Simulated scan of single mutants.
Amino acid sequence: MSKVKYYYDSETLSYRKVVRKKRTTVKYVFMFLLASALFGFMFVFFASYYFESPKEKALARELQNMQLQYELLNKKMDEAESVLANVEERDNAIYRLYFEANPIPNEQRRQGFGGINRYKQFEGFDNSKLIIEANKRLDIIQKQIVVQSKSLDEIAVLAEDKEKFLATIPAIQPVNNEELTRMASGYGYRTDPFTKVRKFHYGMDFTAPRGTPIYASGDGVIIRADAGATGYGKHIRIDHGFGYESLYAHLYKYNVKRNQKVKRGDLIGFVGSTGRSEAPHLHYEIFKDGVRINPINFYYGNLSAKEFSELLAKASLENQSLD
């Protein structure tokens, strides 16, 4: 039960009962409610400012974890870029140099992405810059990997071609040293044995007994095995590919036929003295793109350094050739 309140009325010199008007009551109630609401709002505001809710704590942990993951991702991208840079350096400085291929321009390796904005979906967030930069780096690394992968595929083809090239080009002496009587004449100006006139000798003459085995100096295909060329008598031509051909002249007989495939070291014929020849010997020539070149540079496959030096000294003597 509420207390009854009185006030002293000076006019009537008596105590009168306090009667609260309804308007005043409503006013007090409204003020009370307003004050309560303001107090509640202030409490919630300060509580939310100074204290985190479980949901906010979970979101904060998730955000912290995402930032940590981005840092780890950036470190991994740093490592990937370092490894890729090392592969690119070896690609340009070793592999392509060895296989005589042009290096890939740095602009092509580092080329960005033009045109439309590829990262528009990442804009408008608190960490948009971080997310966009990470995605840009990742896209560039992926593109560099694609470029490098294609380059390594190309190098694999070049290596295969190089292997074929090294196997096919003439690289051994066509007559074994043990079966040689002597190296009669080399590439250069020599005295013709029939006319005694000094003229250019386009091959090397290896003196050996009739019937001495002759070996293919490189892999290839027999394109001639006949006596239809003037002066060569019975002779063999091998197409080695890559613009190289070898010729073996004045043979006694053949051990191969036209269009036959041969490997380096295969027995292809025997020394003789057919055609324009003064004595049994092998006349050996090498062609590159249809031009005769000095065979002395193509014996690295079966001669030691000492044997090559001796052969070089004999071949440089300006003497009389045998054909």
Rank of each mutant, 00 (worst) to 15 (best):
S36D: 04
S316L: 12
N65A: 03
E62T: 09
T181F: 10
S185G: 06
E107H: 01
F242D: 09
I214D: 03
E11K: 14
G269L: 09
T191Y: 15
S128A: 14
L38A: 15
K22G: 02
G269N: 12
Y70V: 09
A80H: 06
I293G: 00
E56D: 05
E133N: 12
V271K: 11
P105A: 08
G233Q: 01
R137T: 14
Q148T: 15
V197Y: 03
V83I: 05
G233C: 00
K17A: 06
Q144C: 01
K76S: 07
D323N: 01
G275W: 02
E89I: 06
G188R: 02
L13M: 01
P280D: 11
I238L: 07
Y215L: 10
A184R: 07
N302P: 11
I132E: 08
R90G: 10
L180W: 12
F125G: 15
F287V: 04
M1K: 12
L180F: 03
Y215W: 08
F32R: 04
F200Q: 03
I238C: 00
A37W: 08
S2W: 00
L282F: 12
A167W: 02
G301W: 11
T230F: 00
L84A: 15
R224T: 14
E71V: 11
N92Q: 09
E179W: 09
L180H: 06
N255W: 02
G228R: 01
P170I: 14
F242A: 05
V221H: 04
F99R: 00
K263I: 09
A35L: 15
G231V: 00
K57V: 15
Q173C: 15
R210D: 06
V18R: 04
K196D: 11
Y49W: 10
K55E: 14
R16S: 03
D192S: 13
L72M: 04
G203T: 02
L130V: 08
